[in-house]
Design a protein around this nucleic acid. Structure first.
Lengths: 256, 256
DNA sequence: CAGTGGTCTAGACCACGCG
DNA sequence: GCGTGGTCTAGACCACTGG
């Protein structure tokens, strides 16, 4: 657990109080990057505690305050969380995290609830042009593509299409059905942590197929959420297009 | 500019190194609240520089580091911004701020552009039940209500209804037409700063009237953005319902 | 040049969680 | 009691801005 990683050494790049000038990057950002790299490389796994401030400071040859600033920045990004008296931990995709960080559909009364899911089908295929572009793949790369319907209190409300790069998810969906909380599944089974997501929203008309699935009229207005989920290093890992019946639920956002 | 405000004194509540126990609130939060209060009371106005860290630390009897933490928290909330070598300034509603902080509609190519506006009408009225509820008003309070259409490159794209509590905006719209950038207008003319906004999104069908305004078919899907804008102290100041034609533009959000 | 914010350190004490 | 993170201080030097 305590192996030194020479590539991580700060001292090799810049001695404390030595050159006095030409600092490429602030120390705390170097520390931030080192920790970030270890998270990406799964040196510290989700749910685990990482070394204490004092230990990191000693290992990296910086002061405790510098480590603290780096850690607090990572906490602000939701990559870590800290508990006084206990330690600093790597964030994991719990139900709660999924609900408040990555799921924005709430009831008219403001109640937050994760919908249940039913998978309709799941195929492996060559990426379409659109899929390759959105997921930043080469033209002939393969993907897993599946459709599902999501239910609030047994009422079909969301129809979605999800595409994953097969490269990162070998054997996905062929053995077991994809579970409801996908991000937790990606993390626990494939070691892939979704760190952020970019969403584009628009209003569309329900197709015949969607109307059937959701029990509404063809042409009814649906809220389209087009989302790219990204790993810790920013690379895309999932493209999801959700069509939501917003008569009893709506999407929420805060600005400012 | 340098008048002491006894109510702001931290030392009256808690002497440095004196009681040693029972700290109600961390010092830096007390400092944060004092500065926040001065922003709310317009002691320091948008665009102006506030006193330096050293001056604030001396006035409030805390260390520079404590002031710095409070200031950085306020910067993270976009209430202040800092420029090395110059000072710390109160944020104002520039075009840029409106565009990146409070306006989420972008073109298919990702281009950000503020649409032009045409006001259709503007009336003073007693608040409806819905308006009173959303703006947290008493049943008989008065409001200003107006409709406008917004254009991207001369193409009508958004129809919106805006309601303001008359109490905060005396004479609004009776003398001059409301300008395109409303938040800047609220700030410069009424001294009201919009600090954050809560948005609810849904998909709806275009009414006959909207269809006419936007040059689309009745029943076409529109993206509804229902937004409450709030002042520095969190009280609602504007209720806006926008219906957007999202065939060439969409709403963007980042999560995580 | 003086003054501002930005980085970094060193060390103190507090509050919390666990054994 | 001990180790953790949380708060607070004091002081150093750096980097940027303006006159």
């Amino acid at each position: 657990m305590d192996q030194k990683t020479p590539a991580d050494e700060i001292t090799s790049r810049r001695r404390r109080r030595a050159p006095k000038k030409m600092r490429a990057q602030p120390l705390y950002q170097q520390v931030d990057n080192i920790i970030r790299r270890r998270l990406i490389e799964n040196v510290w796994k989700p749910g685990e505690a990482i070394p204490s401030e004092m230990q990191l400071a000693a290992e990296l040859n910086v002061s405790q305050g510098t480590v603290r600033k780096a850690l607090n920045d990572l906490v602000a990004e939701n990559l870590l969380y800290r508990r006084q008296g206990l330690g600093t931990f790597v964030s994991e995709h719990t139900e709660r995290r999924a609900l408040f960080l990555f799921f924005s559909i709430v009831g008219s009364d403001g109640a937050r609830l994760l919908p249940e899911s039913r998978v309709l089908n799941c195929v492996e295929d060559v990426a379409t042009k659109a899929e390759a572009e959105r997921l930043e793949l080469e033209p002939d790369d393969e993907v897993v593509r599946f459709h599902r319907v999501r239910f609030f209190n047994d009422i079909a409300t969301i129809a979605e299409t999800i595409t994953l790069p097969l490269e990162h998810f070998p054997g996905f969906g062929t053995e077991v059905d994809p579970p409801n909380n996908l991000f937790r599944f990606y993390q626990s089974v494939y070691g892939i942590t979704v760190a952020k997501a970019d969403e584009q929203l628009a209003a569309v008309s329900a197709s015949e197929e969607e109307a059937l699935l959701l029990g509404i009229d063809t042409g009814s207005p649906l809220l389209e959420i087009d989302r790219i989920a990204r790993m810790l290093d920013g690379r895309p890992v999932e493209w999801r297009v959700s069509h939501c019946d917003t008569r009893n639920y709506h999407y929420v956002a805060e600005r400012g």
